[in-house]
Computed example of a mutant assay.
Amino acid sequence: MEYFKRRYLINGPIGTVFLFIYNYFLIDILFRYIDYQLNPVVLLSICLFLALVNIISITVEMNASHKITRIFMEISELWKWASLMFLFELILLYVLGLFIKIPRELVLILYSLVIVLGVYGYYNAHHIKVKYHNLPILKEDNNESIAILHISDVHFGSIRRESILVNLKNKINQVYLDLKQGGMEHIVVIISGDLVDGSSPVDIKDLEPLKDIKPKVIFTPGNHDHYQDINGLLNDLEELGVIVLNDDSLDMKDLGLNIIGLNFKYEDMESKWEEYHFNLPVNKSETNILIFHLPVFYEYFKKLGVDLQLSGHTHGGQFYPANLWVRAVYHKLKGLYAFSRDGVSDRFYLSVSTGLGTMGPPIRIGTDSEIVVLTLNNKDFKK
């Protein structure tokens, strides 16, 4: 909760003051490049409106979610994304202006490009794609295949609310039926953290679409799940039939799977994180799947006997050029990673989902809103 309060302080009051000043200069320069001088009163009014939209929506949504403030927050986040793109364009225009006289038409084309990218990114963020991979990690005596539907970072909250869980439920159930028709008997859904965004309170009625998901659903918390009422969230999920693994494990002996859920919150970084002292209930005779929100410590977990790590958190960078910064922090940015040594497979995999929802602006450019279907089998297994 302390981290959440600090986050509010930065994004709320401090962030609003910064945005007011930033927007004042940005908008003024944007109009100057098309040879138009905004009236100072109009400019101040625009910046004040954007500042109020930001602080009001964030503050109200902390306590209760309302349709109007959700619209305000979406407007604010979309503008933050657009203003960043405009800033990059202004830098480009400044550099070009050192060498050539820039025609007004070119400036308008560049400005229009931001709108086009925004429409595409918004559309892309709201459409779920399904990606399939085969993983030969089941033990030798298991002759059946198992499908794991890996989902992460739903970010149910102020911006992505009712529709995102309904769309998730419908998509999962469709994939489930398709897999069943294809002969797949065992299907499990695993959500590797950040089911909720933490930007607004969530109650059991908000999460009801989860109870209509046909396969068994397993969930382990990520950092955003802790921002408000984590205990209430976990209780509601269990009441809806979701299996919560919060520093716990589930031994599915009938499938030969041992699923371990390692909870993550930033407060842990100064204790078990830095020392890498994780107590994992690994079962050597079964296939061990670790749910851990961050795509880190995979080499360490591999040594402990984990066969598959399911992570998220990165959103794949969500949009350019944010992906460059995220990749610098998390080297395993998105996708499925297979590990080998001297050309020989270690039979360990790391699945880093780009997520289903979005963080901040509901924009995806260069990444997808995805469900990852991992088909586990024992093809070519050798002890």
Rank of each mutant, 00 (worst) to 15 (best):
E2V: 15
E2F: 14
F4N: 14
F4V: 14
I14S: 05
V17M: 11
F18T: 11
L19E: 11
I21Q: 09
N39A: 09
F49T: 15
A51D: 01
S57L: 00
I58W: 00
I58F: 00
M62P: 07
S65D: 10
W79E: 07
W81M: 05
A82K: 08
L93R: 06
L93Q: 02
L96D: 04
F99C: 07
K101R: 15
E105D: 11
I109A: 10
V114E: 01
V114Q: 00
G121F: 01
H126Q: 10
H133F: 14
P136E: 06
S145N: 14
D153R: 03
S158A: 03
S158R: 00
E162I: 11
I164L: 04
V166L: 15
L168M: 05
K171Q: 09
Y176L: 04
L179F: 07
K180A: 14
M184I: 13
M184C: 11
I187T: 10
L195K: 00
L195R: 00
I204H: 10
K205Q: 15
D206P: 02
K214Q: 12
I218F: 07
N223F: 08
H226Q: 08
Y227P: 06
D229N: 06
I230R: 10
E238M: 10
L240P: 03
I243Q: 09
L250Q: 08
M252R: 11
D254V: 13
G256E: 05
G256T: 03
L257F: 04
I260M: 06
K272V: 10
L280D: 01
P281F: 01
V282L: 07
F301W: 00
L304R: 12
V306R: 01
V306E: 06
L308W: 02
H313N: 04
T314Q: 03
Q318D: 04
Q318K: 04
F319P: 05
P321H: 05
L324T: 12
F339D: 10
S340D: 13
V344K: 15
F348D: 04
G355T: 01
L356G: 03
P362I: 01
E370V: 06
V372N: 15
L376S: 06
L376T: 06
N378F: 07
D380K: 14
